[in-house]
Amino acid sequence: MATDSKEGGQELVFHPMDQFIVKPLFGDGPVGLFTVTNVTFWMVLTVLAIVALLVLGTSSRATIPGRAQSIAELAYGFIRKMVADVAGKDALPYFPYIMTLFMFIVFSNFLGLLPGAFTTTSHIAVTAVLAMLVFVAVTVIGFVKHGTGFLGLFWVGAAPLPLRPILAVIEVISYFVRPVSHSIRLAGNMMAGHAVIKVFAAFAPLVLISTGIGLVVTPLSILAITAIYALEILVAFIQAYVFTILTCVYLKDALHPAH
């Protein structure tokens, strides 16, 4: 990967992808299946953050909530309402898992925005597992609840009869593309945002190398980092929201396959 580019004799170093490297937390050995890595570290932090908010924050069980309890109740109500509204009341038994997904993604995204942090959700392996779990679960639920009637999802009754086989092919393809777009959307958004911040960060020390252009470029790049960072905070939440709401949409298809 050509990440080093020489400018003005001294080096301006571009390593936008280095932040995504998985490395063992202790020592320098190879990364095995059970090695404790930076992935482990940040996932444990995610779990601790969730525990702090949803368990410790609500430990007082106050009728008039404090700050943490308000946020916890807000998150609970937000996701529960989303499940009920988008997927229907009969999807509420699956609410704990959807809540798990949402809390994991939103906290991974936000923790990943800390400077120097490792963003677990920027890895396709991670998001692909999340999306495949949803995909498999939705398919299984669909067939368990409706048997072969679930295949009616692909047979668009509203379309004219000659069109239906063609539409069925398109529907099947779009059904199997779902986990791909579902996972790559999250990983791509996270990775792109963080890489862009890193690229701008690499331009920031230009003033140390060539003072002339640097006086213009360095403030501009710092400004750009700030702006992109603000955008990333928004994106971190919106992507978690989008992942969750799409899960609800897919779940609705499994519970009510009729078009």
């Binding site: 988008v86 777009s181 790559i184 959307r185 791509g188 929201y241 989008v242 709401i245 799409l246």
Partner: peptide, 23 residues
């Protein structure tokens, strides 16, 4: 609002695919 976000997600998915191809 939820419908809007679903629409955004579907529109964005194809852009993400081209991003993936670039990567």
């Amino acid at each position: 609002t939820a419908t809007m976000f679903i629409g955004i997600a579907f529109a964005e998915a194809l852009g993400i695919f081209s991003f993936l191809v670039a990567l």
